[in-house]
Amino acid sequence: MLKQKRNKLHKFLKNKADWLRKETLKIHKVSAETRLASSLSAVEIFTVLYYGDILRYDAKNTDWPGRDRFIISKGHGAVSLYPALADLGFFDSDELMKVCKAGSFLGSIPDPVVPGFETINGSLGHGLGVACGMCVALKLKKRKEKVFVLIGDGEMNEGSVWEAIMFAGQHKLDNLVLIIDRNKICMLDYCRKIIDLEPLREKFLVFKWNEKSVDGHNVAQLHAALSSIKNYRGKKPVALIADTIKGKGVSILENDSLSHVKSLKAEEVDALIN
């Protein structure tokens, strides 16, 4: 890609991410039950996947066999995808102001009742194993689509995640892309104080995976990594460790070990979005 074109794309993605962050805050104002900090760490990841020409999708036909599958296993952290899906035509934007309200299909944790979501989310540690099954099926049918999974680093405490990691390495699932939103904070504390995952990169390597690490808020780095992963076939699954900040963009949440359970008041949201 020409440098000029690339810079233009990065600027576009950066603007989209800023917009998505604001829209996520607006949803939080409507529904304080949404987990804001967890949603904010994944904003650039969602932006690059959907606006950076990484995922193939059909907003009007979400069962289209030619789509890339995207499973968001970190249940509460998916709210920041809602504005993007509405913007891209998966559902009406008016729905965004009804999140968690009676009659709405948009909850604080999305399920396949929301167009664009593949699996039931909410209990952690399920997405990667289900994705592995999809990968086996797609390979058997000789289909080229990939399966992307987003998990949180705290989610990696679940044993079922490691069952799936071992399986994917064993079966050389090179159509599987695991993105780890490495925001380093669980619900009650920093991950390292509960179960220290480090050295995480090496863990993937010894489990027969390829691994890439990026700054998860740098759209240029994310786009470069995901573009190369998208075209990759190398007899190994790929883990993309995206180093992120929980609550990114909201200074009172950033690096607060209890940010997962913190909500902002309406006036605090207003100050951030105006």
Binding site: T119, A137, S160
Partner: peptide, 15 residues
């Protein structure tokens, strides 16, 4: 790995 058994089965069945 019974947990993974069910999850792999789910993924295959979804497809």
């Amino acid at each position: 790995a019974e947990q993974n058994l069910i999850n792999i089965a789910t993924g295959l069945a979804i497809e």
